[in-house]
Nucleic acid binder design. Structure first.
Lengths: 231, 231
DNA sequence: CGTCTACTTGACACGCATCAAAATTGGTGG
DNA sequence: CCACCAATTTTGATGCGTGTCAAGTAGACG
């Protein structure tokens, strides 16, 4: 039984520069966001980890500090893949998360479970690339809500989804995940709230009021719906 | 020795709808682009392939026809990964390409070479996600040129790079890869030409005149440059 | 209660999409 | 080789979505 790590919030760090626009003057010394624990960065560790509870994000940075979150991991997901001993991405935990290292026997990429995880992550990345390159701001935010509600929704004691979930990401994290700015994310969320798609009193506690309309707003890839047209 | 497939251009198909904007009226019956051979689409085949020569692209589609090319494969790359028997992405060859199927013995994802390819692809996807979400149009186009010149440049007989390469992608493909429109791609390319970064007389034959300035225009991830700042 | 940070909201600007049309390239048949 | 048509690429004019800048509000924590 592997030991379980419990990571907690790190002390505040200077703000980072994001946004989509050209090189900003900013070039901060600390690259991770506030309230985060940096698990490793660009090739420091050699173990694979499993998320037990909470939320871990993978990210990349440009030289001037612009950040892209490439994946959001919920319970069960593995991370820490390396190429030639260097980690593929930077990983951070959001608020409190429990992670456990995989045993040495499982560290090999030829392990079927690990290979399967690689393919899953790759598939998710493809879908996310489509979101980043081809979706509008509204579609992006709606997609994120659908995705996060699936990852983190708590089922009631009767087993039915409550459609209320804890948003582990800040608005800035969402922006860095979706290729937007904090302001645009905030505007979309509040518009959805006005339109009755979602509700939130606390900014981190989301409730989906109209899942169908939300999913329609999110847009779909053809594969996801199974539709494939041929002449 | 596995047989080698030679794929050629397919007959013309109706145009597809791309662009980043909301649902377009368009919803065409044929989903692949012109002059392309569709290798498989959303879960039709079970073999892994290796690109021997030419260029293969992986793509995804949204319901209304918007397309995102998620990766561009040059010689040596593998593709055709599946999850539960369904292909992760749609693959198409551009113009003429030679591909060969991997032997049955190699089909297992636990094969080290296959696992390594998965990680390589995943790493490339992360870098591309950063491009899609956080780079400007100029940075995107410059990055694409740098990347394609590495994939397809022909070394002279003395072994020195000639920095001239065949652009397998059309402007529309580039746009779908970079999350832009055809017009923006064309404008960037011609601006780079005016500024002396690149040159091309034929639209498909690119020559890099100033690799350093081009790479500077492309921007870098911190990992790529090896730079990592800590407090 | 004061301070700090995250979040929200408004006014404005600009990069890139959109729309339109001309120029170039590619292919086919005479 | 040239004429002709379709597709691609280029170029210009214009508009919109989203980024930028700025100010205000709300929670969290001492």
């Amino acid at each position: 039984m592997p030991e379980t790590l419990i990571t907690t919030a790190a002390p505040a760090a200077p703000p980072r520069a994001s946004s989509i626009r050209p090189p900003r003057p900013a070039s901060r010394s600390r690259v991770v966001g506030e309230n985060l624990t940096l698990l490793y960065e660009g090739g420091r560790n050699r173990a694979l980890y499993r998320v037990v509870d909470g939320c871990v994000v993978l990210s990349q940075l440009l030289n001037d500090g612009r950040r892209q979150i490439t994946d959001v991991l919920g319970p069960g997901r593995l991370f820490g893949f390396t190429i030639d001993g260097r980690n593929i991405a930077t990983a951070e935990t959001l608020s409190i998360a429990r992670i456990e290292p995989l045993g040495d026997a499982d560290l090999n990429a030829t392990n079927p479970a690990v290979a399967s995880e690689l393919k899953t992550t790759l598939h998710r990345m493809q879908i996310h690339a489509t979101l980043l390159g081809r979706k509008t701001a509204s579609e992006k935010v709606a997609s994120a809500l659908v995705e996060l509600s699936r990852l983190f929704n708590r089922t009631g004691r009767n087993g039915a989804a409550r459609l209320s979930f804890h948003l582990h990401l800040t608005r800035a994290d969402l922006a860095d995940w979706l290729g937007l700015t904090v302001e645009t994310v905030s505007r979309c969320l509040n518009r959805f709230k006005r339109e009755g798609l979602i509700d939130f009193s606390h900014p981190k506690t989301m409730r989906v009021l109209d899942p169908e309309r939300l999913e329609a707003t999110a847009g779909f890839t053809r594969q996801q719906t199974g539709e494939t047209t041929r002449p």
